[in-house]
Design a protein around this nucleic acid. Structure first.
Lengths: 408, 408
DNA sequence: CTCATATAGTTCAGGCAATGAACTAAAGCT
DNA sequence: AGCTTTAGTTCATTGCCTGAACTATATGAG
């Protein structure tokens, strides 16, 4: 397949292109090629040249810049059979990024190296329901500082961070627009306080979006177009198209939890009616299954639901079946709107998949025949740490795509 | 606002950037600046330099290339008050593109100059229902040749063309995958036969997508994010985000006609169940209104429907109200998936808007409160020639974005 | 009428980045 | 030991943008 001709500036972007942009672009190209080599194998400059289409001379020069910036390092030799062996190149293991998460029941921070490996992870239980933002952020800052200093003792430098939050966010403005389960509305987060003096600062992400990005990286099938649906208290989603997160014009695309699946249904927290969330959200499933969400923690209730399903309690089974069926309707509509035909189930959808799967497939077959093959309905590969990994991964990726931001 | 840093090659695209790409990119930047100047005003090189951020020297050189390629021309002088007057630049009026359309009841061809003005238009009635593709294409080729020669007599050269078809298309493969109302399934179209030896060849478009692009250009409010829904025999749609058509990974995004609005509804031609099209497509509305679509032409039936609405025939009114209400549900879901909050109604939705509007707004308010303001629900500005204009406009735009394709 | 001023557009030296060819380096094979 | 093969570097060349100097052409003041 022929690659599209590169375009320097978009049609709207009135940025003039100069020769320096070429270097920035090629720097990213080279770094990307090194990053995308199968883990364990360390490409030589010559291999990078082959992969990128650049000449050996250019690659040598670009690699030098990346070495100077400390983003990559040389490691060992790489015999190719005959001839002079190449010098292996890899992403520097002493540079890393911090993934952070604020969720309803906990806060968490992890150090992820540039290759995507989790070096350290700490989780701190904390009831953030209807919490104030300041204390939560302060607690997270303490946690982050501790993890950071542990990493520092191992010679790992933190370049930047990503924070995932369960709610609608405005990344540019560092604002959480609304996070119903935290009780936050339009709060500004002082992100830089989380990682003082980190070279790249801290970026903000929606939880489901971040998790979708983590899936992208860790999918065994290597799919680059899919919808990630995350069942939590609410139902979130992230759309990945062409290995990119599709955020829509306002940055809030993929909110599949609020697709209408029951025109005559009940009210939703979003103000709408008959949203998927009112059928397939945790509270909805619990109450339809006859389990009280109030008595005890949410995870305890989930365990109770699983026990009920295993022993075949009719009310529980039909609650989950209804959720699966309605999820299918929402996915059918989504397929039509964004032309996607593969789904990854996360959150409680992953846990409930054995019971959800059949009604989900039925429903997909009924409402969008031919769109989703059964093997394209899969379960999350990253599990509950998806948001954390995705937030970190996204920051790493933006670094790989614009390495010139690191002094070079 | 700070413009995003230009990126030469995408993350996936393994195309190396060389210095020549800078020129290509800047060529497009300059041409785009000239094209986007308010019609009637002809910018000077100095003004272009100001608008693009390039130096006067670079602009002079780039403009020279564009003049040589015949894409622009110098026109008159442009006094700026004091000082030497600038030389006006404009898109060449003697270069044009042909927009073509194959629809159920007609074929059509128009010549559109680079500024987007329609110079010539011919429409030929023709019943293409369940037609063979070859004769239709042959008839269109004859029509196109005639229009082209008329244009040639006026000194206008046709650089390329765009063909809009009511069905799913594969533009790269020049294939119509399925066009239910033409009865076409996976037919290859010999597009180049339509405009032999045109410099840029002929591109293929989905009708609703092309119409969406035409809206983009002709919208009085200048909106750059909206959903265009076109009511025809089927219900088509085109999503415009950031002034770009959003096509999705497979190129078939925006098929809002097959969003599920009635889970217990009837079968749809797509194989699904309860699709919007089964409620708001022309045949569905006609039959719910008690009008026979068989007796007489479709436009006659539409006239009958309008008369019935004007005299308040209850069945007709409620059929259209139901269509509007269900359209609202589909738009509500679409808003959630792609984060769009503005709609343009085309096709019969535009004609029926006086009766559709109230139920549509009610439904939007109920299912997606706060998403669509009333003033963001508007009627098509281009009318029935949208597909034609959009197909041509898209070809023009791709030329403006890659002018180096013309010998230069 | 002439000269100062302001703006448009061109010319030219300088710098930067990629290229391709020539060259050096370091292995395996015979 | 010598040939071959592959990795990586050096260097002259080319292309493009930039900024400064320069030419061209208008208005307006004296």
């Amino acid at each position: 397949m022929v690659m599209p001709a590169p375009a320097l500036a978009g049609p709207g972007g009135a940025a003039p292109g100069s020769v320096g942009d070429v270097r920035r672009s090629n720097l990213a190209l080279v770094l990307g090629a090194i990053a995308e080599f199968p883990p364990g194998t360390h490409p030589s400059r010559a291999q990078v040249a082959g992969a990128t289409g650049l000449t050996k001379a250019s690659v040598s020069s670009l690699v030098l810049d990346l070495l100077d910036a400390g983003i990559i390092r040389e490691i060992g030799l790489n015999p190719q059979g005959r001839g002079r062996p190449g010098v292996g190149l890899e992403l520097s293991p002493s540079r890393a990024v911090m993934g952070m998460e604020i969720n309803v029941d906990y806060i968490s921070a992890a150090v992820v190296d540039l290759a995507g490996t989790v070096l350290l992870r700490e989780l701190q239980e904390r009831d953030n329901r209807n919490s104030q933002d300041m204390p939560v952020l302060a607690a997270l800052a303490v946690l982050a500082a501790r993890v950071r200093s542990t990493a520092g003792e191992q010679g790992v430098e933190i370049l930047g961070g990503g924070l995932a939050v369960p709610g609608l966010v405005d990344p540019a403005g560092a604002r959480v627009l609304t996070a119903p389960n935290l009780g936050w509305v339009n709060v500004y987060l002082d992100l830089d306080a989380l990682l003082p003096e980190a070279a790249l600062g801290v970026e903000l992400f929606n939880e489901a979006n971040a998790a979708a990005l983590a899936e992208l990286r860790h999918r065994p099938d290597g799919a680059s177009n899919f919808l990630f649906v995350s069942g939590e208290v609410g139902v979130g989603g992230g759309i990945v198209i062409g290995s990119e997160l599709f955020t829509g014009p306002g940055g809030h695309a993929g909110e599949v939890g609020h697709i209408v699946v029951d025109p005559d249904g009940g009210h939703c927290s979003c103000g709408g009616t008959g949203c998927l969330e009112t059928v397939a959200g945790q509270d909805a499933i619990f109450s339809a299954a006859g389990l009280a969400p109030e008595g005890g923690s949410r995870s305890a209730t989930m365990s109770a639901l699983l026990r009920a399903l295993e022993s075949g309690v009719p009310k529980a089974v039909s609650a989950v079946e209804r959720a699966g069926y309605c999820l299918g309707m929402a996915l059918a509509s989504t397929a039509r709107v964004v032309d996607i035909d593969s789904v990854v189930l996360g959150g409680h959808f992953a846990v409930l998949e054995p019971w959800l799967r059949a009604p989900l497939l039925n429903s997909l077959h009924k409402y969008a025949p031919g769109k989703y093959a059964s093997e394209h309905v899969t379960v999350s590969a990253v599990g509950e740490f998806g948001a954390l990994l995705g937030a970190a991964g996204s920051v790493i990726r933006s670094l790989v795509e614009a390495p010139h931001r690191l002094h070079a």
